[in-house]
Design a binder for these strands. Structure first.
Length: 609
DNA sequence: GCCGTTTTCGGCCCGACTGTTTTCAGTCG
């Protein structure tokens, strides 16, 4: 078989969007246009690489990709191009698709500008458009005016400066910006409630724009208050009482949507999405003769039917005949059917998702103990991290620094360093036990002596056999040679996992968000091995990893594999980031029983050792 | 072009906002 071409999800999404735009200006059926747009968005938001899915023959499992688009993408991966797409694009000037990237310019205006200003080639197109706008040649075009010309210039400048945030922000950043803004909003007594919406409420690994909903009886007043938020750089859109849109000083776009309390539930539901969830929910409702909107539910068969309003989401879902669905799983992946089964008291309904409060300990921490590691050392001491964990009410902690670097140390030095750490940890454990006995109350936090050990390309672990005697357990992980093919990588990982002390496979796909794709593994084999040999897969809560990704979490859970949700903290303050790992778990339909560090200490010890 | 608990045909979300317009078109989410 000839070598396949690689296209990123982003590139594929752009191709599909361009096809949609081409169809739109050609006056094609708007539903076909929408279908391509939907497919593009779905590809963009897909948590796995389409190339991988294509390899596995699973392209049509992506929502919005059916027979036709799948076959076009197949052609794309095999040959690097799609004849049909080239046909569609043939008559259209390439500059059109460049102009479309300017905010406020869609396919129609883009084509209009291209034709009226006669800028057809892609090269220098934006510069020529800018010049034309500056010379007042845009405002005289039909349908354009002074303001649009001004906006166009501003848009071009933003594009040139690279200010258009196409890149999505990491979840923790969106989460913290939103929290800060919500805290500000709630200071206003007219604000009844405020929540994040969209992908942030569903806790995706990366977030496009921040959307916030507000419940209030005084929308105008609250809207004015919102625009006074000190961190706003620019107001983009100034609705009176429904929608406000701003850009923060830090560059992120924030939308705020206001609603009266009596219909807040429907609004919250509507804008939480996902799009696919809402589409499925709407068609489900239509089957029952109901039509959904952000304002509520109305009967389709009754003329001039009144819209029934819903103060809460729970009531909204209940009226549709289903249980309330946690936002994290509203992705159009069977949750509606599951919620219906739950409401009917049947088995196999919604999962009882794991919660942060279920977590009893963290098994992956990097202290600043000078173990002279191959990778980054932590920044906080054992004591600092233990204190933080105690504040969180944890029962146990595992210190798992990286193994001492192999190139810088002799085997004996590696053994000595690991022993030294175990001696020190024992002292700390002993003295804290003694202190507690004296005060006589709480059980002290149990400290495990672990290590994060590299799996060498050969599958060997990076510390000598003798060093393992000092460890309670090892998290093993791939930190080098990411380029091995799927077969070799799977063999490597399985061999690493077969060591009796190797209990947890750390950040299993090796992905770093926006930096590198993970390597490929034969997940069926990995799941099978974990299940048979009592090994566990990690969900690393590190904001730029969130690995396992949610879709693999769901597969692991369905296969019966148990998970460990760890913070992988490199300083004490990061321990609290574990909540993002819980979010990933929830998105993967994980229940408490699927997670080993929800177990109390004695039960955990039973399965870990 | 996609999709399926009324459907393999016939549906497919639509409202807010803005600018250019005198009642609407384009963009966006």
């Amino acid at each position: 078989m000839p070598k396949a071409k690689f296209f990123t999800n982003q590139e594929i999404a752009e191709i599909l969007r361009n096809i949609a735009a081409a169809y739109e200006v050609k006056g094609e059926d708007l539903f076909r246009v929408a279908a391509y747009q939907r497919a593009a968005a779905s590809v963009e938001h897909s948590t796995s690489q389409l190339k991988d899915l294509w390899d596995e023959g699973k392209l049509d499992e992506v929502p919005g990709i059916g027979k036709s688009i799948a076959s076009y993408l197949d052609e794309l991966f095999r040959t690097g191009k799609v004849k049909h797409f080239e046909q569609v694009m043939k008559a259209l000037p390439p500059s059109m698709f460049v102009f479309e990237k300017i905010p406020g310019v869609g396919p129609k205006r883009a084509l209009e500008l291209v034709q009226k200003l006669n800028i057809t080639s892609e090269k220098g197109a934006v510069k020529r458009l800018k010049k034309a706008a500056k010379e007042g040649k845009v405002r005289v075009l039909e349908g354009f005016g002074e303001k649009l010309e001004e906006d166009l210039l501003a848009g071009i400048e933003a594009l040139e400066k690279g200010e258009l945030k196409t890149a999505r922000m990491p979840l923790y950043l969106a989460d913290s910006l939103a929290r800060e803004l919500i805290a500000y909003l709630k200071k206003n007594p007219k604000v009844v409630e405020a929540h994040p919406l969209g992908s942030l409420r569903r806790m995706l690994a990366t977030i496009g724009d921040i959307d916030i909903s507000v419940s209030t009886e005084n929308p105008k007043e609250v809207m004015e208050y919102f625009f006074k938020y000190p961190k706003i750089k620019k107001v983009v859109s100034k609705g009176e009482e429904a929608l406000g849109r701003v850009v923060l000083e830090s560059g992120q776009q924030v939308d705020i949507r206001l609603s009266l309390p009596q219909r807040y539930g429907a609004m919250l539901q509507y804008f939480t999405g996902s799009k696919q969830h809402n589409i499925n929910l709407r068609s489900y409702a239509l089957g029952k003769g109901l039509s959904l909107s952000e304002y509520g539910i109305k009967k389709t068969k009754v003329k001039k039917a009144e819209i029934k309003a819903y103060p809460t989401e729970e009531e909204f879902y209940h009226d549709l005949g289903m249980e309330w669905i946690p936002p994290e799983i509203r992705e159009g992946r069977g949750e509606i059917e599951a919620a219906e089964r739950t409401a009917q008291g049947k088995a196999d309904g919604l999962p009882d998702l794991v919660e942060l409060k279920d977590i009893k300990g963290d098994l992956h921490l990097h202290s600043n103990f000078p173990i002279e590691p191959s990778h980054d050392l932590g920044a906080s001491s054992f004591e600092e991290m233990i204190r933080t964990a105690e504040e969180l009410g944890y029962q146990y902690l595992g210190f798992t620094e990286h193994n001492p670097s192999v190139s810088q140390h002799s085997l004996q030095q590696i053994i000595d360093l690991i022993r030294k750490k175990s001696v020190l940890l024992e002292e700390i454990s002993y003295s804290s036990e003694r202190a507690v006995k004296k005060r006589g109350k709480k059980i002290p936090i149990k400290i495990f002596n672990g290590l994060e050990v590299d799996i060498n390309p050969s599958g060997e672990l990076a510390i000598p056999e003798k060093a393992f005697q000092y460890l309670d357990y090892a998290i093993i992980a791939v930190h080098s040679s990411f380029g091995l093919n799927r077969e070799k990588m799977t063999k490597r990982v399985l061999q690493g996992l077969s060591h009796p002390k190797a209990k947890i496979l750390g950040h299993p796909t090796g992905r770093v968000i926006d930096v590198r794709e993970g390597y490929e593994l034969d997940w069926d084999k990995i799941f099978d091995f974990c299940l048979k040999k009592g090994k566990f897969l990690e969900i690393s809560a590190l904001p730029n990893r969130l690995d396992l990704p949610d879709f693999l979490v769901r597969e692991a859970v369905e296969a019966g594999v148990k998970l460990a949700i760890n913070s992988d903290s490199h300083e004490a303050s990061q321990i609290a980031l574990l909540k993002y790992g819980v979010a990933v778990a929830r998105r993967g339909w994980t229940e408490k029983k699927n997670v080993i560090n929800t177990l109390p200490l004695n039960k955990l010890s039973d399965i870990l050792f």
